[in-house]
Design a protein around this nucleic acid. Structure first.
Lengths: 150, 150
DNA sequence: AGTTAATAGTTGATTTTGTAACTAACAATG
DNA sequence: CATTGTTAGTTACAAAATCAACTATTAACT
């Protein structure tokens, strides 16, 4: 295992970002998975509805940058667990307006609280200025490559 | 779609990290996928071997923090494409020493060059100090939660 | 109006991942 | 030196992600 090349993979941004993202998601994932049997897209949909109150699948997909089939299946799972309900839009019958049921709202409130304290815990290791820079830069990266993506 | 709750999902670190990681990986992914038909674990294994020269699956898995079944499958794919070869370890027959074939080395050199310029492109938007802080903080986050993970 | 294009969302087939069980080889202990 | 435990790696099956094709509905154009 002698070093043949001095490229440091652990400094390569896509790799490093992925390691950090995975590590940072892990603890939160365990909670929404163990406590509610949710998948990643599920909690994201739940949060979007919890935050915004009433949305269509299409809008959630655009906001969260998630493909519509993933949204469709997440919505189906959340509906099966009685966490959300669909209402046909009277003006456009292709559209379904989604809202959380009381059970869904309760799950959202619970996970929202978890998210807040989980994040506080993550930030504990960071100097105050670092968190700002981190968020700003991550946001720029996330936005940036969207253009490239189309 | 009225706002009911002022929690900002896009500032929530696991979410934001994931968006940034996905966006930052996308362009590079397209290249190793389109050009070599590789999957994420494939290029990582390729890079580990390209950098370190000779490793076992076990060591790659530990270094890259990837489960052994994923490594096993990536190695099988890379072997099928004649990018790497296995040698049984004379001292311990459970172990297979992996090395890149000339074709594998060529692919590594190509993707390595792509990675360098791709990263330079990613960093173009960042102020010089920001890149340092970013790497440092990401590294800390990546390390940190490993402890939590066990 | 009638045809064509576009949009919202679902479904099905294929690929990839995750989990657990497995084989083969080595190590440690009595 | 036999049994028990560990480790490296593979395989099988289930869960999930991806991609393309599909239905239903609305919008646009002639």
């Amino acid at each position: 295992m002698t070093k043949k090349d001095d490229f440091d993979l652990h400094l390569f941004l896509p790799y490093l970002l992925n390691q950090a993202a995975e590590a940072a998601s892990y603890g939160f994932q365990r909670i929404y998975k163990d406590r509610y049997g949710m998948l990643r897209t599920d909690w994201r949909v739940l949060f979007h509805l919890g935050i915004h109150g009433r949305m269509t699948a299409r809008d959630i997909g655009r906001m969260a940058r998630v493909h519509k089939t993933k949204i469709s299946r997440a919505v189906a799972r959340l509906e099966a667990r009685r966490f959300l309900q669909r209402e046909e839009d009277p003006a456009d019958r292709r559209i379904e307006n989604l809202t959380l049921t009381p059970a869904g709202q309760a799950a959202y409130r619970d996970l929202h609280a978890v998210a807040e304290s989980y994040e506080a815990d993550l930030l504990r290791d960071l100097a105050p200025g670092e968190a700002e820079v981190l968020r700003k830069v991550l946001h720029r990266l996330a936005e940036r490559s969207v253009v490239t993506r189309g």
